[in-house]
Design a protein around this nucleic acid. Structure first.
Lengths: 338, 338
DNA sequence: AACGTTCGGGCGAACGTTCGCTTAAACGGT
DNA sequence: ACCGTTTAAGCGAACGTTCGCCCGAACGTT
């Protein structure tokens, strides 16, 4: 069973196949009558253009790459999944599709795979997520001059397209909220140093305290991985302090950590939201179903997806880009835990 | 800046470009000496074959399609994400990539998009997930004779490639476990009728009771959507029954439902795992972090991903397929809630 | 009547591969 | 010394499009 090509359509409608091509890409200079005849033939034969041939001729693929990184600890990353979904949605509206591939996250990320895909003309650009300071992927893509746009910032001196959510503002509104609730002693469960996103969030935390005239106590800032276990350990540490030296509210840089803290506090008999306040960050889908439900920060992921795609497509099409970096504001979601 | 083609490599190594092609696809009949010269030229020039040209010539794309369905209620689907990850991993090992696209789930799924992608030769086949009885996608793909393989079964009389996890066995081991723990009165929070997966799980539930000589009480089987809300409502209903008419254990067909039930029971002052047993299904990543941690059924997702891919690639390559349907066994994960 | 314009459509070529066939040279056995 | 076989490499064609250019007819203008 051989496929139907543009020549079959041409034969049926009695024109040359190049004329059919003209009609399909509607670049004028065909009489309405023959155009109708051609469309009818297309319909009758069920003709579908062969993408490979078109790609070869036009030197394009209408494909964008995204490297799927399995998280190290296999923890869920609902935020990324949602981002990806929204990005795909926007791509489709522009006739693009998403090509997913894997990249070893174990040791050094295998950056040349990006160039490989690009040089083979399999993809026209990339979207990245989960970026960091000194991100080797970004450095490599910039150096190789490969189009890309990322969800997340990197070194401020690097000049590339990114969209990010203002973590500084996110933790700022958390702290303001806690202070307004009457808390004066606020602890923070943070990520290890070296995390770009973590640093911004800490800045917001510090700024909130500072402007309220509260002291930033370094012994109330604990650092650990993005796990439930760390959250529990952090809370346990806070509970072990003498009462006068103990924070009455604990802000966490992620929901995962907050859930750990929440579980530990509850298990110790504390009524979270009353005896102690706990806040998260991300508003993962499960956050509302814990007891008590989690006060957290919701990020406008859908908008991020759209904007990242817009930036990338503008690059690919050589259109002017007004603003290379876009910073969006998250919102506070107040629930029972604070 | 023009790309490097096979002809550039040929020129540099002093052979015809067709000979270069032979070397690249190592189909013999080239002397070791010239082969070395060619590889060297490839290296020096940094030549990468143009995928579009190759695809056009070989009538292939090395791409597999997967339709990303946003869940109706925006609930998380970590299981699917994990399946997808493992599928991509296996594809890569065979030189394939995954092309993701969207399909409206709102009203009737837009099945022709499958044919569109296939006819355009953009993909060589599809993987499906989250299938159901009378699944229109499967019916369509079978009718159109398009290669695909699915995670999940459909009508038993349909002849297609699938891999599934034995939900009958899954609920069977749950019930056995509860009975062994001394429970005689066991309720079930199930999905609405018409769900294939749901029906199998119910069968396992019924079989477990039957073989233990226990009665299957229809008023202890409640049905609702796959949401936390339904879980809570279901548990509330059970609690409202007079004590003698109340189940002492509740099995749920998903973790989401179980979490709702767990929250409702805890809020009502019951100590779950002691006053009442609750079990889930799926072992979502968060399941272990609830209080109490959730007894549930873990599915061998990674294996599913591999097998689905194997089946699909065999179809595409025209290799013989020993078994069109593959049924895998899940395992019980016992935690505090039972 | 001669000439420039517009319009509809055809034609050749090219995109970068792979495939099958042919050819020239080298080889080995009687 | 002859001939058949193997080996190495070249050659033409094809995959299915799109692009730029050309050509002929119809038309209106001076």
């Amino acid at each position: 069973m051989t496929r139907i090509t543009i020549k079959d359509v041409a034969a049926r409608s009695g024109v040359s196949y190049q004329t059919v091509s003209k009609v399909l890409n509607n670049q004028g200079n065909v009489s309405a009558e023959t155009e109708a005849r051609i469309w009818q033939a297309v319909e009758e034969l069920g003709y579908k253009p062969n993408i490979s041939a078109r790609n070869l001729r036009t030197q394009s693929s209408n494909l964008i790459g995204y490297a799927w990184q399995r998280s190290v600890d296999d923890s869920p990353r609902p935020i990324l999944d949602q981002f990806l979904y929204d990005a795909v949605y926007t791509f489709e509206q522009h006739g693009y599709h998403l090509l997913t591939f894997l990249v070893d996250v174990d040791d050094k990320p295998d950056v040349p795979i990006y160039k490989e895909l690009y040089d083979r003309r399999q993809v026209e650009g990339f979207i990245l997520a989960d970026t960091n300071h000194n991100d080797p992927r970004i450095a490599y893509l910039m150096e190789q001059n490969i189009p890309f746009a990322s969800f997340g910032r990197a070194n401020t001196e690097w000049d590339f397209c990114w969209v990010d959510i203002d973590g500084r503002h996110g933790l700022r509104i958390v702290v303001d909220h806690l202070i307004q609730r009457g808390h004066q002693r606020i602890g923070l469960l943070a990520w290890p140093e070296g995390s770009e996103a973590g640093a911004y969030r800490e800045e917001g935390f510090a700024a909130g305290l500072r402007e309220a005239g509260l002291e930033l106590r370094q012994d109330w800032v604990l650092r650990g991985n993005n796990t439930v276990q760390f959250g529990a350990a952090g809370m346990q540490h806070f509970r072990s302090l003498p009462e006068a030296e103990r924070p009455t509210a604990v802000a966490c840089v992620s929901d995962l950590i907050a859930i750990g803290a929440l579980n530990d506090a509850s298990a110790a008999g504390l009524i979270v939201g009353q005896d102690i306040a706990i806040t998260g960050y991300d508003d993962i889908p499960m956050a509302q179903y814990f007891t008590p439900s989690l006060t957290t920060v919701r990020q406008p992921i859908a908008t991020v997806g759209q904007q990242v795609v817009d930036l990338l497509l503008k690059q690919i099409k050589g259109q002017p880009i007004a603003e290379k970096g876009i910073l969006l504001k998250p919102e506070l979601v107040i629930r029972e835990s604070s």
